Simulated assay, not measured.
Amino acid sequence: MKELIPTHRDNNGNILVSGRDLHKFLEVREKYTQWFERMSEYGFAENVDFTSLSEKSEKPFGGRPTVDHAMTIDMAKEISMLQRNEKGKQARKYFISIENKYKQSQLDTTNLSPELQMFNGLFKALAKNELATKQLDSKVDSISEIVAVSTKDWKNETNHLINKIARQQGNTGDAHRTIRTDIYADVDRRGGVSLNIRLTNLKRRMALEGASKTKLSKVNRVDVISQDKKLIEIYMAIVKEFAIKYGVWKDQY
Rank of each mutant, 00 (worst) to 15 (best):
V140M: 10
F119M: 15
K59V: 14
E78P: 00
L112G: 10
Q117T: 11
Q83G: 02
T151S: 13
S113D: 08
D153Y: 06
Y94Q: 04
Q90K: 14
S138C: 12
Q135H: 06
D49C: 09
M81S: 06
A132S: 09
R92L: 11
Y102W: 13
V140F: 02
Q104E: 06
D108S: 11
S144A: 15
I143P: 01
V147W: 05
N85R: 12
M75I: 01
P114Y: 06
V149Y: 13
N85A: 09
T109V: 12
L126Y: 05
T51S: 04
D74S: 08
I96E: 04
V67E: 08
Q135K: 12
T72W: 01
L53D: 07
I96F: 00
L53Q: 01
T66M: 14
D141S: 06
G121C: 09
I146W: 06
V140H: 02
E78A: 11
A127P: 06
S57C: 01
S97Q: 15
A91L: 11
E130G: 11
I98Q: 02
D108W: 02
K101T: 15
T110P: 03
K128D: 01
K87C: 02
L82Q: 00
N129M: 03
V48I: 15
Y102C: 11
T133F: 08
Y102K: 13
S138Y: 08
Q135C: 08
H69T: 06
D137Q: 08
K134Q: 13
V67M: 11
H69L: 07
P114I: 08
F61V: 06
G63M: 14
H69R: 14
T66P: 06
T110R: 13
K93P: 09
P65R: 01
S52N: 14
T151F: 13
K56P: 01
T151I: 14
A148H: 01
D137I: 13
V140N: 03
E115G: 05
K101V: 13
Y94K: 04
K56T: 12
S97F: 12
S138V: 13
F123S: 10
M75H: 01
T72L: 04
K155Y: 07
S54L: 07
Y94R: 07
T109A: 11
Q135W: 05
T133G: 09
T66W: 02
P60L: 13
S138P: 02
A132E: 03
E58Q: 12
A125F: 08
S54D: 07
T151W: 11
K103Y: 03
S113M: 11
S138F: 07
S97L: 12
L126K: 13
T66G: 05
F123G: 06
K124F: 05
L82M: 09
Q83E: 03
I146N: 04
G62F: 00
H69M: 08
S52K: 10
L107I: 10
A148D: 10
E86V: 14
S52T: 15
D74R: 10
S57H: 03
S142N: 08
T151R: 15
S142D: 07
I79C: 00
F61Q: 05
G121T: 06
N85C: 12
I96T: 03
M75S: 04
A148M: 12
D74G: 02
G62D: 02
V149I: 14
Q83S: 00
E78G: 04
K152R: 10
P114M: 06
R84K: 12
